[in-house]
Computed example of a mutant assay.
Amino acid sequence: MEQVEKAVSAAVYDEGDAGLDLGASLLAAAPWPDAGRELLRRGEEFVRRAWERGWQPADVVRVVRRDLDDRHVRLATDLIAAENRRYAGTAPRWEAQLRDLEASHIWWGGDARYADELATRERTDRFSLATAFLELFRHLIRLPAIEPVGPPPGEPVHVRPHTPTADEPRMLTRVRALLAKAEATDYPDEAEALTAKAQELMARHSIDAALLAAQGHTGDVPTACRIGVDAPYETAKAILLDAAASANRCRAVWNSGLGFSTVVGFEPDLESVELLYTSLLVQGTAAMTRAEAAQRAGGRKRTKSFRQAFLTAYASRVGHRLSEATEHVTEEAGGSLLPVLAARDVAVEDRAERMFPQTTSTRVRGVSDHAGWEHGTAAADQATMPGRPGVTR
């Protein structure tokens, strides 16, 4: 449709707002059902280009949510669902992302009806919808190329998928239950103990998977996933994610500009990292809120520096305690297992080095609030780890 082509060209490839207004005006004046169908087609093309540059559905929605607004997120989800119709099948992680985003299927009756049904859903005028579409297109076309963590949909999967062990679903259910209890309790020592128990279960499962792979029962190789690291306090959150990754024999590489970390490891360990990081973030935020309330009750006002110091100290100390839990389980398994685990560590490191040949380390800055650091360390230091002597301050 020529009018849509003119609108997209005027808005998407122009730096200023004048082209955006012109494009939106052209779209609003076009026959709306035809314009909606053509916007879907062009949007699918922009989404497909994002896939070719290494992006995945959750990545796209995350960056759109960060940089635009909720309407753009809904439109992006529509375009992802529309583009997904092209593919007979996708990788398991891709399918899981589509389910989480509710983008596995289109919600509208047909592309010819999309524009009218969209206007009903959004309850706004054509010009506003056209502007939102063009802003989204502009954002999608400017996404940079990133390291792929799996084949784009439509391409064959050359890596043999992870074969779950017989007890894996039951183990994950137990881990989720332990972490849910840790998030729900108001007692830091109980939360720490529950989290440590979950880490021990995950470490034992990782060892079992390593043994099966060493015996030739599975064809697992290291893979990767991306996990969002959102503002505020993203530096502390990246440290927390790195702690969860290291404790589970993975490596995390943070992209601060795009707001995510890429975690490299074997598939069972990646799932453990995702579960653990999400729970630790909930627990750390709750502990920080309680610490701030206690400070305010004592007549002190705390600032951003307190929260940054708290979460950084929390992440640092939790990392040590998670590693202790993993080392404890490894010691129990016996020294004969060490060559198997070392080989997997080398494989993960090699995959990470090939994906990220140029990484940099940076010094953590801005941790200047002593009280925040003390409270954050205490929040991570309250509990007795299972099988370990208690830690006292």
Rank of each mutant, 00 (worst) to 15 (best):
A294W: 03
L79G: 02
D59I: 06
D189P: 00
E327S: 13
R62D: 05
V4N: 06
R123P: 00
R93V: 03
L27K: 04
T362S: 14
E374A: 12
R49E: 06
W107P: 09
Q199A: 07
D208G: 02
V8Q: 01
R226P: 07
D125Y: 10
A191W: 12
D14C: 13
A379M: 10
H370K: 15
E190N: 05
A325F: 01
A252W: 03
T195P: 08
P156L: 09
R226M: 07
R251N: 04
D69A: 11
H205P: 00
N84Q: 13
L338Q: 14
V63I: 07
R204E: 00
G387Q: 04
R354F: 10
T120A: 09
E267C: 03
R123W: 03
L258F: 15
W108N: 06
D100H: 11
G265N: 11
E102Q: 14
T163R: 15
V391K: 09
V47L: 11
W108C: 05
S279Y: 00
A177F: 06
T163Q: 15
R41Y: 09
A177Q: 11
L241R: 10
L136H: 12
F127L: 14
H217I: 00
R65S: 04
A130K: 07
T173P: 00
R296S: 05
E122Y: 05
P232V: 05
R41G: 03
P164T: 06
G19Y: 14
R42C: 04
G284W: 05
V282D: 08
A294T: 10
A132C: 11
R307H: 06
N255A: 14
V64W: 05
D100L: 13
L143P: 04
A50T: 13
K237S: 08
Y187M: 09
L140F: 03
M1I: 13
T163I: 12
E332W: 06
L178Y: 10
G36I: 01
V12I: 08
G376C: 07
L201P: 00
V8F: 07
H105D: 00
G216L: 14
G19M: 13
R302I: 14
L22R: 13
R170N: 08
H72V: 15
E52P: 10
R176S: 04
A7D: 00
G228M: 05
T285Q: 11
S305H: 15
R85E: 13
A294K: 12
V149N: 06
L311K: 08
D350C: 06
R365C: 01
R93E: 05
E117I: 10
R62F: 02
L322A: 12
R363S: 05
G284S: 13
S256G: 08
L143C: 11
E95M: 10
R126V: 09
W32F: 02
I146H: 06
A177L: 10
T303I: 00
P389I: 13
L212Q: 13
Q199F: 01
G298N: 13
L27N: 01
A342Y: 07
G228F: 03
L322Y: 09
S368C: 01
A236S: 11
Q308V: 03
R307Y: 04
C225A: 06
V264S: 05
P152K: 11
G109V: 02
V159C: 00
M355H: 08
A193T: 15
S272V: 01
A145N: 03
T173C: 01
A333T: 11
T120I: 12
E135R: 15
V367D: 09
T362M: 11
R99K: 10
S246W: 06
A347P: 05
A238Q: 14
E292P: 02
A244Y: 12
A115Y: 07
V61D: 01
